[in-house]
Design a protein around this nucleic acid. Sequence first.
DNA 1: AGTGTGAACTAGAGCGCTTCAGAACGTCCA
DNA 2: TGGACGTTCTGAAGCGCTCTAGTTCACACT
Lengths: 351, 351
Amino acid sequence: MDRPRKPTLDTVASAVGVSRATVSNAYNRPDQLSAALRERILETAAAIGYAGPDPVARSLATRHSAAVGFMLGQGLSASFADAALSIVLDGLASTVDGHDHCLVLMPGRERGGPRPETVARAQADVVVAYSLPDDAPALAAVRARGLPMVVIDQPVLPDTARVEVDDFGGARLAASSLWGLGHRRFGVVTFALHPDGHNGPVTPERLASTSFRVTRDRLHGYLDVTGADTPVWECARSSRELGRAGARALLSETPRPTALLCASDELAFGALQAVRDLGLRVPADVSVVGFDDVPAAEHSDPPLTTVRQPLAEKGRHAGELALRLLDGGRPGEPTRLPVSLVSRDSTAPQK
Amino acid sequence: MDRPRKPTLDTVASAVGVSRATVSNAYNRPDQLSAALRERILETAAAIGYAGPDPVARSLATRHSAAVGFMLGQGLSASFADAALSIVLDGLASTVDGHDHCLVLMPGRERGGPRPETVARAQADVVVAYSLPDDAPALAAVRARGLPMVVIDQPVLPDTARVEVDDFGGARLAASSLWGLGHRRFGVVTFALHPDGHNGPVTPERLASTSFRVTRDRLHGYLDVTGADTPVWECARSSRELGRAGARALLSETPRPTALLCASDELAFGALQAVRDLGLRVPADVSVVGFDDVPAAEHSDPPLTTVRQPLAEKGRHAGELALRLLDGGRPGEPTRLPVSLVSRDSTAPQK
DNA sequence: AGTGTGAACTAGAGCGCTTCAGAACGTCCA
DNA sequence: TGGACGTTCTGAAGCGCTCTAGTTCACACT
């Protein structure tokens, strides 16, 4: 039951016969004491089972917690299913982890982002937000706490670092290429415009009030080329299954689109499947383009034409920004990473 | 530059003209003060920009941090690429988050688990370990800190809660079924036996010293039925690509195996591809079985026969265990979740 | 002998919060 | 009228650590 209380710095200090400060130095500033004493302290600590300074107490004293928070738009499994997110997160983790920082994940609630309470309790001294709705309460919660923040794919907030990608331009690029190939009848498969789980055709009103910046930009990029009356199908999540269903719906319209523009590769993979489902062929009968260029895009059947954005780079950069903010750096200008069109075999001229 | 210091409990207390304790109560024990006063406190707090008690200070005072740590065997992107892990993690997150706890991720270093320093600094009051090498230093680091721990798919450690699955039995189940279908020539594709990045055939010595419990059990389950001389190919990670390469290698041997036993679905998907690569058909020429039953198994081509383990359940249960340990509960007996064979179309009788 | 110097170590004041044992003040009932 | 009780609020002792501004001391230099 009442086993011996956990040892603290004091325990060690008095065991060795030195002051608490010295023990602290043994861990944090080896140059402040003689090597011999340090050795003795560490040994004694090990002997009495002291595992080093308590991280919480240390954080309180130093006023930072060596952790960066990451706010997700959706729940964890949904997030992990998203290859693009995983790559971004990994890029972020690699920079952050190299600096001995932990990653505190704040999973979102049905696409709306984390609950404000979650944010309020999270121990992190900088947080990065990824593709939340523009009006997510979590965003306000972070600001209320006065934590520095870096947003990825999000509208600018005052005093916030930001990394972004030219989603609009990328989408235009893809659509223009198709247009150049002679396509005139398009269909667009997009992921969520609102965090309400809607699946189905998109009305103009819904389009006008889109709460995800990324969705909005990609969509507008496509429609800018194809025309505002292009049919758009919304999927609640960026999943292959939903993309398949959406594409199937679009392809059943008359006249049938000759090209499908998808807001993500994942949706595009579903579209590929849908085309096959209907006994048609890609790209002979229908061209399909994706967005992101996840690794699988290269290996799909057929390999996917898609808009490449530097995902890992995005994460890494966000990590660096976060680290810089931690050092008291200023947010600075938003970084805009380049996009490019990767032409593979899922697109062909429309005869 | 020197903007006003961040407000604290005291700031609010003196602004309202009450004691600090009362303000604290306003946040943590509404029943301890009159509704009117509480209202006034909260209003004032909002007015001066106080976002609620500092989580770190609160943690120090209460001696718990409302976070559960999660130790990964590998880096984040590798982890996220693993569908099974994602599901487990999501199950865990859902129970944990429901109780207002955060998830602190500790990414591993090349399959060996997180660095001990990472563990030492992580602010969590219980940690769950997932499929680390049996001798991971991170495990020792957790014990050194005296943190309660729940391990998933890991050998028992004293004083540790545990959830596991009958990997050996499950593997036997799959192998026996194939045996029953008349197969006599097998090949096994497995993921890492050691955290050293090895890809290639497995020697008996290597097999004998396997440092991942899961790998060991599944392998032994297969070999128990097929015989110890069955060729085994090891992949450094559980990826489709590596599985494909491994399967291709096994299928090039003479006599060619008629059935491929894979340690994971991901590897099995690669094997499916490999069979096609060689111009053979599944299951007519070669039967393939996986392990895990991730959602994609149902939709592969052909749908995969695999050993089903309740992944989400595993995560949820681990979360509950973690929460219970937090409440001072005892670890209790390891929970063993059931496995079953899901027969789909990737297996057929050997004529 | 006197002084300057640097290395080695320490005292003590926080960091921002929780919590427990009261104090103060009604209220209610016998 | 008085005491028993409840409610509402306060004082102060921590939680375990870091860090600044020292103090001590040995040694070298003049």
